[in-house]
Design a binder for these strands. Structure first.
Lengths: 332, 332
DNA sequence: GTGAAAGCGCTAACAC
DNA sequence: GTGTTAGCGCTTTCAC
């Protein structure tokens, strides 16, 4: 316990040192209200001399709103969420907001507990992934009076603000694209759909679209655990062991699809003539492989940016559809 | 401004509703001090009924330590930092700590401003990447009295706690490995070293090791901007246009190395017989490509975990070397 | 086992 | 333009 004494320079001490009142120091520091240039100088000099760092805890308690935004995200392994955080935090930092986060690991129960913990900091907004929350979470969020932003999904009812795109539409368009290219014997390789409900939505609308076209899904391979390149490779290997006559495979996302691509590369399976591959997310890496990956590019960073802008502007409840872009690539 | 009224259920209201004093409610909620089972039930019932969410802002102000840990990281695009956050936040959440973060974009000036903003929340600890801070940042951190953890680098003097591994050692061992494999005409493809000082340290000790062995670096290609697969691809393409007789290339990290690998794949350059490739980080994807990438695996998640554990335990100042692992792979 | 009261370090009226 | 003062919602003695 070698802790140095917590350097507790307070606003009162600064006021004392500068020979002014506390509220004057507060005004100068927040550049709010009126004070003379001379006063300002004396205050700043005292701040500098004492190395004063304002206490936001006290400040927030005394004032109304906190410049804090809470993120409750499913994962940090799936690049989607760091991307969203990146977009949001850039905008928030510009506006002198701060970001708190916690990771649910795709567990709705954890989400509820973590959201409660976040709410205890009285944030200006809570940002969560998607619409699948427990009743408890929804109730708590509604009761909190703080802004709520649901991200990356539009297939459901928003609590307050929603920013993202439709996963169902993405699944549908992916299927439509493969059908248009005349693929008819289509398989699927995915990861844990119970937990990643957005991947689940894409998959179900993908299947519906195939069925409607009279070319239902032939085979699927669903791996436990999160998406990864290795799981994609393994998944395709297993799928092809069971279904040898596929002409295309839809993957739950680009990580998985890359794994599939590498499997084909290693096995000498010609893409797309022998087997077509289609992903989801539009990661940069998909464009750097020898054959650009056919996929759907999602506006992940923009989702974060827009969400943050709406909070900073205290915008009214709304649903913002950012859409997505189908990239034809060379693998399907 | 359609904000619902901020639902301000306070501890006082809970006390009132439960027919007990405020301090009793506080004791029950924190499970600290003594109270009867009956009292406990009544308090919990009132909490439930009113939907009370404790105000941590007030709680922290009234008590001593805050269960808040601040991360000041260079980037969220480089997977390294989400990995560290992931490890740390898992441990912190288990211990009911919360994580605040901000992103410096590799700018020491921004780091100083953001660190100051973080300090305003009086966190239990501030975690930063590496040792390269401005004098202002170092001074402020020291004066703050809060714990400081420097992550992912050990080549320098720690302010308080440091957790990570030596980037210089990593550069040295990478060079030694290539030399041992009898590569002698070695090149380098890297990203912005001014900003990513850890990559800079790896590179300089890599070069020193080559020189000491009488096989100095033949050529280098350094791209502006952050590391990416595409930049790696482009970098190798440019490098090979100038230096056609290389037998191995060292990349600033795995993202870059993957780009190089894909370039070779697309150009029909045989790996490793025509050209060897060596990376840094040991990303999972490097093991899923047809030829496993030769690289150094760094304990990124563990770095976050250990750092968090030390903070939770309020451990004394120390330097923790987690080391790294050289993966021989198939590309060098 | 429990309650009353004094702060924690600020902000926001409100006087001057 | 500036100081005084009353909270913000808790935790923490300290009596009882």
């Amino acid at each position: 316990m070698e802790l140095k004494q917590q350097a507790t320079v307070t606003l009162a001490e600064v006021a004392e040192a500068a020979g002014v009142g506390e509220s004057t120091v507060s005004r100068v520091l927040r550049n709010h209200g009126s004070f003379s240039g001379k006063t300002r100088e004396r205050v700043m000099a005292a701040v500098e001399r004492l190395g004063y760092v304002p206490n936001r805890i006290a400040g927030t308690l005394a004032s109304t709103g906190s410049r804090l935004v809470a993120f409750v995200i499913p994962s940090l392994s799936n690049i989607v969420f760091p991307d969203v955080l990146r977009g949001a935090s850039a905008v928030l930092e510009e506006n002198r907001y701060q970001s708190v986060f916690s990771v649910t690991d795709y567990d709705p129960g954890r989400e509820e507990a973590l959201a409660a913990a976040m709410l205890a900091w009285r944030p200006a907004a809570v940002m969560l992934a998607g619409y699948e929350h427990t009743d408890g979470t929804a109730k708590m969020l509604r009761a909190s009076g703080c802004r709520v932003v649901e991200l990356l999904d539009l297939d459901g009812d928003a609590l307050d603000i929603a920013v993202g795109f439709s996963n169902r539409a993405a699944g549908r368009e992916s299927a439509a694209f493969l059908l248009k290219r005349a693929y008819r014997r289509i398989g699927y390789v995915g990861h844990d759909l119970q937990r990643d409900t957005r991947a689940g939505k894409r998959f179900s609308s993908f299947c519906e679209t195939l069925e409607a076209a009279g070319a239902p899904l032939i085979a699927r391979e669903i791996l436990a655990g999160p998406s990864s390149v290795e799981n994609g490779r393994l998944g395709l290997e297993r799928l092809l062991a069971r279904a040898t006559d596929l002409d295309a495979v839809y993957f739950s996302n680009d990580d998985m699809a890359l794994g599939g691509y590498f499997h084909c590369l290693a096995q000498g399976i010609a893409i797309p003539s022998q087997l077509a591959i289609f992903g989801y997310n539009g990661l940069d890496i998909g464009r750097a492989i020898p054959q650009p990956l056919s996929t759907i590019r999602t506006p992940r960073v923009a989702t974060g940016e827009i969400a943050a802008q709406l909070i900073v502007a205290n915008a009214p409840p709304q649903v913002v559809d950012l859409g997505f872009e189908l990239i034809e690539g060379a693998t399907a």
